[in-house]
């Protein structure tokens, strides 16, 4: 579904991404794990076509990213960016229906059917009761689900999420990640997300790509790539890895 070959990206004079290669199959949930400034967001923005790579290629469904028009791209990948500055207190349903933009011409508005579809998406994620509330007044976890709903309204083949668990408490973190996993399964969506908590990454992804200083240092099944050596290399700290019921649990040493 997503294929990245020899991708280089440069911020002014420093490298943002260095020879990134990544292959994500259809329906896989892949997590980018790595310290701040390791290039996770940069990589996502290159796939969104918000940043233009210096060299290398990105293919979506076998088609080169350069060949996509903006609304074709929006029909292929739905994104939830890291920061959203709240402005006007739109109702949750109005935010979700905005996801229909790539299917509407500049001078048209969403139809009754679009609003019905938006309600259905909200229902799938268990937040239909929020539909009429201002999105500025719902909790952080609920707002993430609202933005995921909006991305789903684009009917994408892949979902790109930049730190969907940022600022969330444990309960909401699990709730959001569960929701992501559920929609990925039900709609056979490819998911590429960035996370900071290694245990979340192990529990919720099919594959993990470890990033450090703009490079992917390891990529594969969580049990294969998450180990003491890789984690120490990434974070420059010491870790212990425990085993519980066939999954790994990462414990860090303070």
């Amino acid at each position: 579904m997503i294929r990245i070959e020899n991708l280089y990206f440069k911020y002014n004079d420093t490298f943002g991404l260095h020879d990134v290669n990544l292959r994500i199959e259809s329906g896989e949930v892949v997590t980018l794990l790595g310290p701040n400034g390791s290039g996770k967001t940069t990589l996502l923005k290159c796939i969104y076509a918000i940043l233009k790579p210096k060299s290398g290629c990105i293919y979506l469904d076998g088609k080169k990213l350069d060949e996509f028009t903006q609304f074709e791209l929006a029909k292929t990948i739905g994104g939830v960016p890291q920061d959203h500055y709240l402005t006007f207190p739109y109702k949750v349903i109005d935010i979700v229906v905005i996801g229909r933009t790539p299917y509407l011409s500049i001078f048209s508005s969403p139809s009754r059917q679009d609003y019905e579809d938006a309600k259905k998406v909200l229902d799938d994620l268990g937040i239909l009761w929020l539909a009429e509330r201002p999105y500025t007044q719902v909790s952080g976890g609920e707002r993430q689900l609202v933005f995921i709903s909006r991305a789903l309204m684009q009917n994408p083949k892949a979902l790109l999420l930049d730190e969907p668990t940022m600022h969330l408490d444990l309960k909401n973190r699990v709730k959001v990640l569960n929701a992501i996993k559920k929609v990925a399964m039900e709609k056979n969506l490819t998911v590429l997300m960035t996370l900071h908590e290694p245990n979340d990454a192990i529990m919720f992804s099919d594959k993990i790509a470890l990033m450090k200083e703009g490079r992917i240092i390891d990529y594969g099944h969580p049990n294969a790539v998450v180990n003491e050596v890789n984690l120490r290399k990434m974070y420059e700290m010491s870790f212990n890895i425990l085993r519980q019921d066939n999954t790994k649990v990462v414990v860090y040493q303070a």
């Binding site: 969104y48 076509a49 918000i50 903006q70 609304f71 929006a74 994104g79 959203h84 500055y85 933009t101």
Partner: peptide
């Protein structure tokens, strides 16, 4: 929604 999000949404 902001510059980046508007682009993501295909505007």
């Amino acid at each position: 929604m902001g510059d980046e999000e508007a682009k993501l949404l295909g505007a």
